[in-house]
Amino acid sequence: MTVSDTTVNRPVKTVPMLSVRGLQKIYKVPGGEVEAVRDLTFDLAEGELVCLVGPSGSGKTTLLKCISGLMEQTSGTVELAGSKVTGPPKSMAVVFQEYGRSLFPWMTVRGNVELPLKNQKVPKAERTALVDAALKSVGLDHVPKSYPWQLSGGMQQRVAIARAVAYRPQVLLMDEPFAAVDAQTRADLEDLIRTIWKQLGVTILFVTHDIDESVYLGERVIVLSSSPTVVQEDLKIDLPAERDQLNTRALPRFMELRSHVYAEIQRAKLGPVTEQITAQRKAARK
């Protein structure tokens, strides 16, 4: 099989915050089926920040859509704090890659952040306080009356993060949120995520294709194989809790970890895939 044996043994406290068991997703397409995700099993403990990294086309977005209840899996289960996810759960927020298409262009920054709370009937005073705090935490307290499209890409993604923060989710899912912003903004946003994670104690599952980003951000990195996806490795990141772009990235341990993940991904791209493709072709011929 493709799962390596290097899986870190973590003491499981009680019920994991997020539990993915045997998740499989098969898309029905004209002329057959495509297995995007084969068999994924992993847990996130409460308050963990875990990065999912995998080669492009490894079904990362599919996986995240299944976890967030936006898409139904073919088999397997997703549990949030012990209860099964069948639709988008209330205590989960998602930040998408396409910031330009996830904010409402007809609402101001403030309106966007406030809407989920308004929808939940949070009282006005509490709402205002939450929105103010969220905007402040992402460094956008000076533009509440602007419209998202008047802001730069990085700032728009900050608005989306503020919206998630104000919502006070138990689990925050992020689907390659910084893939479409420039490198400098990206570094700032990475640090922002670490800061928010520490402040709020929220459980974060961060999907990325960027190896350095996954090692820099995560407390744990789950390496996915290429499609059809399985967990290739579950790696603990033993870097200091206080991280910064200059020093952390210069640490020998950072280099080791990133090289290790890089090698794993290369292996994922090459290894078992060819067998799987031949197997699939055989199956298709039947």
Binding site: M92, F96, R101, R163
Partner: peptide
């Protein structure tokens, strides 16, 4: 309507009348 905006609405539980009105 935009699929990503639609997913945003769904993930924040914005449904029914609120979905029509705000989205």
């Amino acid at each position: 309507v935009d699929s990503v905006l639609n997913d945003s609405c769904r993930s924040y539980g914005i449904r029914g009348f609120a979905r029509i009105r705000y989205f």
